[in-house]
Amino acid sequence: MLKEIKELQKTAFSELNKAQLLEDIEKVRIKYLGRKSKLSQILKGLKDLTVEQKAEVGKVANIFKRKISQEIEVKITALNEANLWPKIDITIPGIKNARGHIHPITKTIYEICDIFTSLGFNVVEGPEAEKERYNFEALNIPLDHPARDAFDTFYLKDDLLLRSHTSPVQVRVMEKEKPPIAIIVPGKVYRPDAVDATHSFMFHQVEGLLVDKNITFSDLKGTLSVFLRKMFGKEVKVRFRPHFFPFTEPSADLDVSCFVCNQKGCRVCSDTGWLEVGGAGMVDPEVFKAVNYDYDEFSGFAFGVGVERIAMLKYGINDIRLFFENDYRFLKQF
């Protein structure tokens, strides 16, 4: 009988070793440990044995039972653990919450404003419907002057127009406040241009103004260099090129080195290696006169950049109309 049990133990363990699935293990359990198991069959013969023999066989049988149960347990745990992972197909997409997107123009405005607020500027906005004085006269843009050509304007009624630039806000703030002034002005502007890939009758600008004692052209250069390199990357070169604006003197156009072609020449920079991104200059004495600032005491610089232009360069967008079509496939990219 002892021999029989030992045989049984051998086959049981070999069968258990072969069992790969939970069902197979269960079969092994039933076969060797169930009520109708072989062991039970063998143990039925116990009644014919002596007390000593009974004790001996009982002990062996119990050891066998314990061993096989333990082994089954281990095997089931291992199998369960192994089964735990293959149950999840990690390649099925996760469940996403609908995420909203900020318009690339707004994003760019925030980016610009954040750079300047970190330099101590305050964000100010002004009305889009503006008085002539703020849009033109106080900015030294006389009526019937070719300088006004660049500022063609939509009129709503007499002395009410859609601002053609954000510069009127400079005047509004200076009229109200005394220096020091450090402001940054984002907003919509309007010019009656026919719409095409690079023109729009509505677009966005960010204007800046710093007025204080002892502000120089060098400060203009330094501040705007910091801005442009934060905006376009440390490696870009910044160039200040003389230009003309009625409200600044001296005036400059702002160029950054073309980061599309690394100044090797491409379509984006018209092979010049430079990208114009805005204008700047020292506030013209006439503007200070219009707001009763003492030009001998204060000086300052002003600048303006086109938001669409910057966003188009930054994101590689080639058509300004995309900003206002609001195609979902466009909006969701930002």
Binding site: L119, G120, P179, P180, A182, L210, D212, K213, N214, I215, T216, F217, S218, D219, K221, G222, T223, S225, V226, R239, F240, R241, P242, P250, A252
Partner: peptide, 19 residues
């Protein structure tokens, strides 16, 4: 400034003096 060259002028950064 124009003839002297904008590129030859230094770049400085200022704090709003009377802040």
């Amino acid at each position: 400034a124009r003839i002297y060259g904008y590129d030859k002028m230094p770049s400085t950064i200022t704090k709003v003096s009377s802040g």
